[in-house]
Design a protein around this nucleic acid. Structure first.
Lengths: 115, 115
DNA sequence: GCGATAATGAACCAAAAGGTTATTTAACTG
DNA sequence: CAGTTAAATAACCTTTTGGTTCATTATCGC
């Protein structure tokens, strides 16, 4: 089941633990132990999450003595961004309409209805 | 398991069939039958995908006679975009580095190593 | 009301996801 | 070498996912 890259990326991201790991890595490299520390789960569980992230190309791992420092790799996020981009007009349009509506409210003639 | 909204959205998006459905809906409303047509799977299967998308707030459904037209709802995509945004600098930085590297390659002294 | 059409629901199944504990590997430390 | 620390692997379990088929609901057209 050679799933497409985008699906692999998105499903890797569809887990709060994994997103938290990425957020931590945005601050800089970290060992598995450091990454695991904030979570109420076993180390093997975190190890599995890391493997998922690695398969998705979202992290890479070095080797330094008995530590395996993880590093954020943002390339797949760029792909997600590109995919999203073709939908941007849909949520911006929503804004445009709200905008238009608010403008409309503002431009109501203050004297309307008087007299 | 009250999963967070972002996880729900991302896991809804982490399926090629569902993304294809959204792509179709970007062209305009469609009935379940129309949406199912391109796929080699049963109608109930598509119905399930639609339910996933609906739970994620990515589509909404009207009712018109015996049809239930689906409509794209992009709001959750905006949230994904916002989340992504905080990582933008990482993939842009990557480009900067590639850029720098390519520049470096270009600026290597063509005579280096000669003689 | 009857039959066709559109879609959902129920029951089931296999595979994948996310976790556990126990074991193994690898590298440092004394 | 022996002991300790960091991490991965193995084996297992439960829940979720993505699909199936068969049955049901709802609405239209006659």
């Amino acid at each position: 089941m050679p799933e497409d890259r985008l699906s692999t990326t998105l499903s890797a991201l569809a887990d709060p633990t994994r997103r938290a790991i990425l957020a931590r890595l945005a601050l800089g490299e970290a060992s598995v132990g450091e990454l695991a520390e904030p979570f109420a789960m076993s180390l093997p569980a975190v190890s599995k999450h890391l493997k998922v992230l690695e398969r998705a190309g979202l992290i890479s791992r070095g080797r330094e003595a008995q530590w395996r420092p993880c590093r954020l790799e943002a390339a797949p996020l760029k792909d997600v961004n590109s995919w999203l981009d073709s939908y941007r007009r849909f949520w911006e349009q929503k804004f445009d309409r709200l905008d238009a509506y608010l403008q409309e409210l503002q431009h109501i003639d203050p004297d309307a209805g008087k007299n």
